[in-house]
Amino acid sequence: MNLNRRQALALSAGAVAFATTGFTALPANAAAEETAKRITEFAGGKEPGTGKITLTAPEIAENGNTVPISVKVESAMSGDDMVESVLILADGNPNPDVATFNFTAMSGVAEATTRMRLAKTQTVYAVAKMADGSTFVDKKEVKVTIGGCGG
């Protein structure tokens, strides 16, 4: 009673039609360009550095509608060594903006988790801005898979 190839093909094609969650993707280039622009703006025209910030996201999201992401920035969270905000962007969504986390000395640790929508497989960016104006970036590619079927 195994699934044969023809059945499986028909199922996966059908699944795509049902899988449209109302979150359509932009053509690849436009979204990626828009994302690069946002990062440069946020970083005050400079290239953000690397290190200090870690973005955690699943390699494969079981469903693009609810993808958990976390950011953590190394910082004493006092004086000059202070994270002010972290910008989250996704370069394959209709609009790259996802969220901005704002931290204070009362945060104690610059760490936060949320859940986001991903229209398709794409790269998620997290850019941290420190009190001294320096910026740091990390990114992760998240594969968004299409379910086989099952309603």
């Binding site: 509608n65 993808v67 969220a99 936060a112 986001m116 991903l118």
Partner: peptide, 8 residues
């Protein structure tokens, strides 16, 4: 947190 429509 400032949110955009990409938040679940």
């Amino acid at each position: 947190c400032d949110m955009d429509p990409a938040i679940s």
